[in-house]
């Protein structure tokens, strides 16, 4: 049996039949165990926050149904393709985005109430809380994606390419969600405490939601707008998810998704770490 306790900046793990093993708070072992504990806390907070839970799960599912019922036939007739294969990926990504915005709101609230500062002075790994937020976001995205895929079957979404591509589709959602989530975290911790970051992020996400190949076929947009729509982060992700579900070319979409994901992560990780430290130590 292994028992774990924190004592003066070190994590002590006592193996019942052996001598205690001591890890410093900056060790990988401490980071791992503390990140898990804090991720559990984040998930419990998320589950208990009913309005956010409704917004993250019920609203995307309802939006999916709405898009299919309202625009499905019109777009289907115009393109000759079942609109569900655009709608389901679109709503999965939108769910991931709006969930990340809710997480950013919570982070701002915890910063305002002094929780970040309290965590910062405790003898725990400096990166544990930030890691826990990203990890809990990934768990939330995974659960939301699976639920929305299940709901998608009601409107005609099917995996025709087998298990591997189906797992690939979920991984695309996770990669997109992680990149957007870390970008949102970076913005949240670097913004001034009273800054209207949530309305602006909401507006930006809503724009992305309407101008992509999942909402309406690319050819339906005005010509001057098509290059923007084709290359914004959501469109290649939707095209890749569609290809993974029903087949089709995916090399270009995969390349674009990879570029967007790596770029967003590269631009966001350092500002997130620096901003988090600043937010936690600010008086």
């Amino acid at each position: 049996m292994i028992t774990s306790q924190m004592d003066g900046g070190v994590v002590t793990e006592r193996v019942s039949e052996g001598t205690p093993v001591v890890y410093s708070e900056s060790s990988v072992r401490a980071w791992w165990s503390q990140s898990l504990a804090l991720a559990g806390r984040q998930l419990r907070v998320f589950v208990r926050d009913v309005p956010t839970l409704v917004q993250s799960l019920v609203m995307p599912a309802l939006s999916m149904l709405m898009f299919k019922v309202v625009l499905g036939d019109a777009i289907g007739r115009a393109t000759g393709q079942d609109s569900a294969y655009g709608t389901v990926p679109l709503v999965i990504l939108v769910g991931a985005m709006f969930g990340s915005i809710a997480s950013a709101t919570r982070l701002n609230r915890e910063r305002r109430t002094g929780l970040l500062a309290r965590l910062y002075v405790l003898p725990i790994n400096r990166g544990a809380d930030l890691t826990s937020r990203v990890a809990s976001d990934l768990v939330r995205i995974l659960v939301t994606t699976l639920l929305l895929l299940a709901a998608g079957t009601l409107i005609g979404f099917r995996f025709t390419q087998g298990l591997g591509p189906a797992i690939g589709l979920v991984l695309v959602a996770l990669a997109y969600g992680a990149a957007f989530g870390i970008m949102t975290l970076a913005l949240a911790v670097n913004a001034a405490p009273g800054a209207p970051i949530v309305p602006y992020l909401g507006l930006f996400s809503s724009l992305l939601m309407f101008f992509n190949s999942g909402f309406s076929p690319l050819s339906a947009y005005p010509e001057w707008l098509q290059p923007i729509v084709a290359n914004q982060p959501m469109t290649p992700a939707i095209d890749l998810m569609r290809a993974l579900a029903v087949g089709g070319p995916m090399a270009e979409s995969l390349l674009k998704v990879s570029i967007w994901t790596v770029t967003l992560l590269a631009l966001s990780i350092y500002p997130a770490l620096r901003g988090y430290r600043k937010a936690a130590t600010a008086r």
């Binding site: 019109a74 101008f211 909402f215 005005p222 707008l225």
Partner: peptide, 18 residues
């Protein structure tokens, strides 16, 4: 403005077919 832009630009050509 947002609503007009977000529905008109993506869907006007689709609706023109009807």
């Amino acid at each position: 403005v947002f609503l007009a832009v977000c529905f008109y630009l993506p869907l006007s050509s689709v609706m023109d077919t009807f």
